[in-house]
Nucleic acid binder design. Structure first.
Lengths: 231, 231
DNA sequence: ACATTTGTATGCTTAAAAACATATAAGTCT
DNA sequence: AGACTTATATGTTTTTAAGCATACAAATGT
């Protein structure tokens, strides 16, 4: 029930909420709660029941599923001002994946019941959610194909480009603004940690990227795109 | 603009449309067109622009994406009374996949504009679509993990169980009510045709299934589930 | 009815990636 | 600071599945 200065509330800044009336926004704000997570904390777990729509006010979060033998597959990466946990909520199911912060994060949870009430009464808002879900589904289908069909180099190159598109660069213009462990990078790209490390090294030797600890600089974007395309 | 006897129209029989008013249903019916496809005909292609929501009144359809080197990956299988082409329509994008009938089929296309109008004015209907899309997204995410992590036998076993869940059995109680080529079965399960044939033979030797041309009988469902689970 | 194409089946070879084994570097914790 | 854990790096072996070749059966066209 956090009710800070209204004009700076996160709900006022988001384009998804643009079709809401003043009153509807007010209701959402009154029924939302803010909480903080340190790096590597679990926000929700596979099997949990959603309590509301979670809005990532600050930080970065990975969403992953446990697969064969506990092997993780990252299915989504959330960034500041993005949603997490919406799928289970809208499908009226329990979570099918786990959300974990990869850096210190702040989330805002909008209470379920009042969100659904507003969805039902505001058609434009619902249509926005429909469009968003359909886009996510397209992304997921495309990803299924690339993760199953591309070879290791192609998958890793694609992941690096994906991270660039999602989080962008630091102010130097070529360092990825996200710091993943080699293991997370592997879990994103459907490969073992060894192969992620090895393939990163290759890219580094080929001067397509530069490595410095967890920092990854993209030196030759065109080359990465070529590698991603060719399987 | 097909307008047959209203009480038997497909829109009256579908549960997704249950929250529509009489008048809304009437509008949809007046703005829908029916067409027929023979086996193996393309209904829409990757890149095409959606003209409406397509409803499969009769038949079976596969939806696939072209991957690396033209290799197909089937991302969905539609059955009688299911929708196809909804994703691109709702995302306001062009199709990301191709839909092709696998037996003679009849489709009913609901004109785009009037569907969106009704979605905007009927909140309950929109919520139904939201729930449907979110479920599909869960299915897609789960499938990504199994297709990338399970081994060939596990993937094929899962596909056979999926086909059983989707299309059910013939009246004998164990013959799958869908007849796919070995190639389609491979494209559904992310493997080469050779490996699909080989693995089907193994299952047949192990008396988990029985084969007779394109007919597949599931003899030991528990065994298939075990194979699907163990990777 | 015949030729031609397409689909199914199986064996063999090769390539890709996982699994395993260490080694070293970097963090974390008293 | 030193012990201990975790992350990164790289070499070697083994497994898995793709690729290729060939044979045969079934469907299709003329």
């Amino acid at each position: 029930m956090d009710k800070k200065n209204e004009s700076t509330h996160v709900i006022d800044k988001m384009t998804v909420f643009k079709d809401l009336t003043k009153n509807q926004k007010k209701i959402l704000k009154e029924n939302s709660a803010i909480s903080s997570y340190k790096k590597n904390e679990i926000i929700y777990k596979e099997g949990d029941k959603p309590t509301g729509l979670i809005f990532l006010a600050k930080g970065k979060v990975k969403i992953f599923k446990e697969g064969v033998g506990g092997r993780e597959q990252i299915v989504r990466m959330a960034k500041q001002n993005g949603f997490i946990g919406f799928r289970a909520l809208f499908a009226k199911q329990n979570y099918l994946a786990t959300a974990q912060s990869i850096e210190s994060s702040e989330i805002c949870t909008i209470e379920k019941r009042c969100l659904f009430d507003i969805l039902e009464e505001n058609g434009k808002f619902s249509l926005g959610i429909i469009e968003f879900l359909a886009s996510e589904l397209g992304f997921s289908n495309t990803r299924t194909v690339t993760l199953t069909q591309k070879h290791i180099r192609g998958r890793l190159a694609e992941s690096l480009l994906f991270l660039k598109d999602t989080y962008g660069f630091e102010s130097d213009g070529n360092t990825l603004k996200v710091y993943l462990s080699r293991e997370d990078l592997a879990n994103l790209s459907n490969m073992t940690t060894s192969n992620a490390i090895r393939t990163l090294s290759s890219f580094s030797n080929e001067e397509v990227i530069a490595l410095e600890g967890k920092k990854i600089c993209i030196l030759d974007k065109a080359a990465l795109e070529r590698i991603s395309e060719l399987g």
